[in-house]
């Protein structure tokens, strides 16, 4: 199994395979996310309703799969393994504040960290196993072990994995696509390689 591609979002800049693809540091994080959506032009209006965590995951996945489509795989053969440090705390805090004066069902539905997984699955028609870990920092060893275990299942052909974290304006996203067939970067899926790619 091999790492086919990567995407990262840090300091309001999006990277594809390590190369800068879009950047706008002159605006707020929310405006950056909207500008990045406009830049990628995916025509998916539901994006506007998502919270920051889901928007970051959506944009990073759009960038990751732009040149590495997964349409050749059956929906049930693609898995998703994500992790972060702040779970859904960024939205939890906003919901807590909003609930003091009014209720917002649209905000409430994002008060779980794995909602971002659902948004990615809906967008890319993924129906395979999905998991969301919460840890203090990106754990390359955990990802190597767990994703390899997932990929060893005969029914699984590909897996989108990585780190999607946001709290206030701080954000850190690193996603990668791992496949059984060699494609794209074709790097070995090891903790050492993941640590290098995450940097």
């Amino acid at each position: 199994m091999f790492i086919s591609g990567t995407s990262k979002i840090r300091k309001q800049a999006i990277y594809h395979q390590g190369t800068l693809a879009f950047e706008d540091t002159s605006v707020s994080l929310d405006d950056f996310l909207t500008a990045a959506y406009d830049h990628l032009s995916p025509e998916y209006p539901k994006f506007y309703k998502m919270d920051r965590l889901a928007k970051l995951g959506f944009l990073a996945t759009e960038m990751l799969l732009r040149e590495l489509p997964i349409k050749q795989y059956a929906p049930e053969s693609v898995s998703l393994v994500l992790s972060n440090a702040h779970a859904s705390l960024d939205t939890d805090v906003r919901y807590h504040e909003a609930a003091k004066t009014s209720s917002s069902p649209a905000l409430f539905v994002y008060t779980l960290p794995n909602i971002v997984s659902g948004e990615i699955c809906i967008r890319h028609k993924i129906k395979g196993e999905n998991t969301f870990f919460v840890s203090s920092s990106f754990d390359a060893g955990l990802h190597e072990a767990y994703v390899n275990q997932v990929m060893q299942q005969p029914s699984v052909q590909a897996c989108i994995a990585g780190w999607i974290d946001v709290m206030d304006s701080h954000h850190d996203v690193f996603l990668y696509l791992i496949e059984k067939e060699k494609r794209g970067l074709a790097l070995p899926h090891t903790a050492e390689e993941l640590t290098k790619l995450y940097r």
Binding site: S102, S103, S104, P105, A106, V109
Partner: peptide, 9 residues
Amino acid sequence: SIDALELIV
């Protein structure tokens, strides 16, 4: 359906 709840609010 979530939008329907928002409309009620």
